[in-house]
Design a protein around this nucleic acid. Structure first.
Length: 490
RNA sequence: CGGGGUGUAGCGUAGUCCGGUUAGCGCGCCUGGUUUGGGACCAGGAGGUCGAUGGUUCGAAUCCAUUCACCCCGACCA
């Protein structure tokens, strides 16, 4: 299964593609640009969903569901929003099929043309703000703190499993507030939620910041983001949170009466993370032996493999395993005892290693004699012999260690690949080394665009609280108050 | 959407230039037996409209045309 698997060194993007497919996370489907998320991959996504959903609810949000289809006219209401998405929308024009009169299969019935075409949502601001108009009259109706888990479609030219697919799964939060400050605070709060999730669950260190105007969400006043560094040094936007101001309220005429009996437009935010996080997870931790999963998101945290010569030897091993399994499950740890006789232990070792299972336990005749088990950890591929009565405690502790080790390792990698540049030559050289480059920028979209055209690097973020440091723009030499973060990105 | 490449069994491939028996091999799969502490071994077996459509030909995996999918590079992309 894991044979003929490219190394990261040879070809990083091939390594990623192979890994996603061979580790059974996802595969390409019969539909162009759309993937099938396989059970093992979906199990990881479900763990992500569960953790995020809990955090959303802890911060006062509730879930709802809005339609997949959006009337075309809704899209034209917020000018920059239209412009941002127009080029990648799937459109429904008809509602019926019929048998081909020539007898060759089935055709779209030309008589069943929709009066108004429907757009398959690329994001839901428009349909949601059209709905919020009816929900909001008074300040007493605010805030509205709604999230939805949904699929969206963006007709991409070039797709890659999880990183960019035509259809993907995500959550989108859409909130409505009485004041600008409150909306801004909400957008910032959700950025913190995403940071917490990325770092403490995915073990992916991220930087928080603000997007430059070029990279800002179409229709937003301000876009906040978290950026992670993949093992090839490229940046990946792991989550975004937008302060939408009153743009959508104005476009959809959503007003409220304040305590002072003043009519005003509502303030908005939206924020989302998608199945792209799966790609971030894979590219942050995995190695040339396959997937490496952080314990908190691993569908199987501990795989237990019995080793025996004769089938009669399995009984005593299973008894030991049952005790261990009960202890681990009582601590909320997910365990798989793989007693299949159709595969050898060696085969299973490789299988669970490739699938990124954090901890593997092997128990054989030798262990029964000595009252021990062999415990192997996926993150650094080391093994220990552990006395049986200390096993549950040892493993519980080990899972925590692996979780923090993965984070620490990724953080060190990122820091080691974050450099500063003060001249154009230096900037080019540092970019080619890979990773993030901190440099001065004169603050204009034109300069950012020129830098992008020349180097393919973009401003990933402007730090939330930049260190004040007067300098000169690396391209134009114009004054700059602080450094921003450049990188080539996914 | 432009340039290049690849489509042969579940996966990886030989054969394609130069048309000619029953399309070959490895992995995987099925059956039986022996095995089992890092991808076991032996024996037997199943599995193919050669990406699709149309054409040339006595004859097409092979030549021609069209088309679809995937990969790489570019353009595009919150």
């Amino acid at each position: 299964m894991a044979k003929n698997f490219s190394s990261r060194e040879e070809n990083y993007s091939q390594w990623y593609n192979d890994l996603v497919i061979k580790a059974d996370l996802a595969e390409n489907s019969a539909v162009r640009g759309c993937m099938v998320i396989k059970p093992y991959g979906y199990a990881i996504w479900e763990k992500m969903q569960q953790a995020l959903d809990t955090m959303f609810k802890e911060t006062g949000h509730v879930n709802a569901y809005f339609p997949l289809f959006i009337p075309k006219s809704f899209f034209s209401k917020e000018a920059s929003h239209v412009e941002g998405f127009a080029k990648e929308c799937a459109v429904v024009t008809h509602y019926r099929l019929k048998n081909d009169p020539d007898g060759k299969g089935i055709i779209v019935d030309p008589d069943a043309k929709l009066e108004e075409e429907l757009i398959v949502r690329p994001t839901s601001e428009t349909i949601i703000w059209d709905t919020y108009r009816n929900w909001i009259q008074s300040y007493r109706d605010l805030p509205i703190l709604v999230n939805q888990w949904a699929n969206v479609v963006r007709w991409e030219m070039r797709t890659r499993l999880f990183l960019r697919t035509a259809e993907f799964l995500w959550q989108e939060g859409h909130t409505a507030h009485a004041t600008s400050d409150e909306a801004l605070a909400e957008a910032r709060q959700m950025l913190d939620v995403y940071t917490n999730f990325a770092e403490n669950w995915m073990a992916v260190p991220v930087l928080k910041g603000v997007k430059s105007p070029n990279e800002r969400f179409a229709g937003a006043i301000e876009t906040f983001c978290i950026e992670a560094m993949m093992q090839d040094g490229k940046a990946l936007q792991a989550g975004t949170s937008h302060f939408l101001g009153q743009n959508f309220a104005k476009a959809f005429d959503v007003k409220f009466l304040s305590k002072e009996n003043q009519l005003d437009y509502v303030w908005a935010t939206s924020w989302g993370v998608s199945t792209r996080l799966m790609g971030a997870l894979v590219m942050s931790h995995s190695d040339d032996n396959g997937l490496v999963l952080p314990p908190k998101l691993a569908p199987i945290q501990v795989a237990i493999i019995p080793i025996y010569r004769k089938i009669e030897q399995l009984g005593p091993i299973s008894e030991k395993v049952d005790v261990l399994t009960k202890e681990l499950k009582a601590k909320g740890i997910s365990v798989k005892f793989d007693s299949r006789d159709s595969y050898t232990p060696g085969w299973k070792f490789n299988e669970y290693e490739f699938k990124g299972v954090p901890v593997r336990v092997a128990i054989g005749p030798r262990d029964l004699e000595n009252g021990t088990a062999e415990v192997a950890r996926r993150d650094n591929l080391t093994k220990e012999i552990v006395p049986f009565d200390r096993l549950a405690e040892y493993i519980t502790d080990l899972l925590d260690q692996i979780q923090s080790n993965l984070f620490e390792r990724a953080r060190l990698f990122r820091d080691a690949n974050t450099r500063s540049a003060d001249t154009w030559e230096e900037f080019i050289a540092k970019l080619d080394e890979g990773g993030f480059v901190k440099a001065h920028w004169d603050g204009t979209p034109e300069t950012e665009q020129k830098i992008k055209d020349i180097t393919k690097a973009t401003i990933r973020l402007i730090p939330l609280t930049p260190d004040p440091e007067a300098g000169k723009c690396i391209l134009t030499g114009n004054p700059s108050p602080h450094r921003v973060l450049f990188a080539r990105a996914y």
